[in-house]
Every structure is written in C-alpha cells, then in structure tokens.
C-alpha cells in the first residue's frame, strides 16, 4: 500500500482527476477534511463549549482533591513534593484532554461502525483503514482541558520557582509526545479487540480508567505495581517522565529508552491492527 512513487501535488487544472498517490499531502488533506467535519458538528452545539468549560474546571478541581488531602499532612511522597506532584498531575490533565479530544471519540464511531456493518465502507475506501478509523471523530472542545492543564503546569512551575531551560522544555515536549504515541498505541490495540468481541461499547471507559494510574509520580508505586506500570502498561512513563524532564531530573538514557519504547509500542499496535483486519476480512459474513 505504501507506494514508493514521488508525491504529486493535486493539480486543479486537468479534469482527468490528477489523483495524488497515497502520500503525506493526501493524508494531510484527508485529516483536514475530518477535522473540519468534527468542528462543523461541534459548532452546531455551541452550548457544549460552555458545558465543556464547566466540566474542565470541575474535573481539574476534582483531580486536585487527593493531592490536597495528601499534602495537607505530608511534605513529600516518595521524594516528590506537592509542586512536583502537581506537575505530574498537570501532564495528566493535558494528555487526558488530548485522549478525550482527539483519540477516544473515534473509538465510539468505530465500534458503532463495526456493529452496524458500515465498517465495510471504510475498507472500501482507498485510504489506510487505520488512518480513517483514527480520525473518524474529534471532540474539539476538549482543547479547554488541555488549556486547563497548561495553566496548572505553569502554576506549579511558578510555585516551585523553577523555569525550565530550553533543553528541559524540549525534552519535556518530546516525552509528552512519546506519551501520546504510547496512549495511541494502547487505543489502537483496544480498537483491534473490538473486532473480535463485537459488543464492546464500553471500551472508551476502559481506556480512561486504565489511564487513571498516570496521575501520580511513578515513584509512588512500589513492587509489582511499579513493574506493571512501567513495563506492561507504561502509564508512569507517560506523565512522570515529561515532569522529570521539565524539572531537570531526567537522565538522557532513560529519556531515549522511553522514546524508543513508544516507537516499539506503535509498531506492535500497528501489527495487531493489521492482524485484526486480516481476521475481520476472513471471518465476517
């Protein structure tokens, strides 16, 4: 499917449809269309914007409750101060916003498609099925969550009196990106599961719940928990490592390992997706 031909920009002149081969401009255009569709739908429900704003504030406050209860009586936990833990929490809120805004919404659309059989139409389109499935739906108002998380992050850093230098900022961003890739890989595996067990309408809840552990600095978890959350479901990596990077506590090797891990996870997820697709096209009637 990945044809090695050079990218031809879509020329509007020739009516004999100058069809660009399946390369970046094509997929960028496709993404733009999908985004525009979701945004148009979101615009129809303008009241949702306010509702989402209220919900963002609600959950932001809610997320702070355990932190406040804990640090009311304790100065630090496993070497993490209140402000440092706040940075991790802020990362969590930001990534959660991206998860619920850009990744999870498509899940509902896909599961619905598989159940109604309309997924066949996705397979009939000459674009990569994974791409179509991943961009099926967005919830643009969740950007407010991300903004809230950023605000919290800034607040925590200010309270700490620590301004990350350029290197730390870059590392933090890269690791947040790696975390995103990791989350997406998990999401893709969950979607692949939907092929086998058709009635999984509550999958979106699963992903959100599993992500729960990423609120806390990884160091907080001991023993088996630590192993699970670092290697099996590397949730600790997703939020803690970017925090460590921003705070200047991360060493290069660990950071690189995390990025490599994210890439490996993405590859595994893609392989599982293709397996699921192969299974679907053999087994469905």
């Amino acid at each position: 499917m990945a044809s090695p031909s050079t990218a031809t920009p879509a020329s509007p002149a020739s009516p004999a449809a100058a069809r660009p081969r399946r390369r970046l401009p094509y997929y960028a255009g496709l993404l733009a269309v999908q985004l525009r569709t979701s945004l148009t739908t979101a615009m129809q429900y303008r009241a949702d914007f306010l509702v989402q704003g209220a919900m963002s504030l609600y959950w932001l406050g809610w997320n702070l409750v355990p932190l406040l209860v804990l640090f009311d009586h304790r100065a630090s936990v496993a070497g993490w101060s209140f402000e440092a833990a706040l940075v991790v929490m802020a990362n969590f809120v930001i990534l959660r916003g991206i998860l619920e805004g850009a990744i999870n919404p498509s899940l509902g659309a896909v599961v619905e498609q598989i159940r109604s059989g309309a997924f066949d139409y996705t397979l009939l389109r000459p674009a990569d099925a994974q791409f179509l499935v991943s961009t099926a739906r967005f919830a643009p108002w969740r950007a407010l969550d991300v903004l809230g998380g950023l605000a919290l992050l800034v607040y925590a850093l200010v309270r700490l009196g620590h301004v990350p230098d350029l290197g730390q900022l870059a590392a933090g961003l890269v690791l947040l990106g790696a975390g995103l890739v990791l989350m997406y890989a998990l999401w893709l595996i969950v979607v692949a599961a939907a092929f086998w067990v058709v009635r999984l309408d509550n999958l979106a809840f699963l992903l959100s719940s599993v992500f729960d552990a990423a609120r806390w600095p990884a160091a907080v978890f001991r023993g088996t928990w630590r192993v699970i959350f670092t290697f099996v479901l590397p949730l600790a990596v997703i939020t803690t490592m970017p925090a460590e990077a921003l705070l200047g506590r991360l060493d290069l090797t660990t950071g690189l390992a995390a990025v490599a891990g994210a890439a490996v996870a993405a590859a595994i997820a893609r392989a599982i997706w293709r397996l699921a697709l192969r299974n679907y096209t053999s087994a469905s009637s």
């Binding site: 355990p66 804990l70 304790r74 936990v77 496993a78 729960d212 552990a213 609120r215 806390w216 907080v220 978890f221 001991r222 928990w225």
Partner: peptide, 10 residues
C-alpha cells in the same frame, strides 16, 4: 487499586 498503590506508599 491505583489509590491503594498510592496510600500504601505513603
């Protein structure tokens, strides 16, 4: 379970 992990550490 997540809370358990947290509070037992604490």
């Amino acid at each position: 379970l997540v809370m358990l992990g947290l509070w037992t550490s604490v």
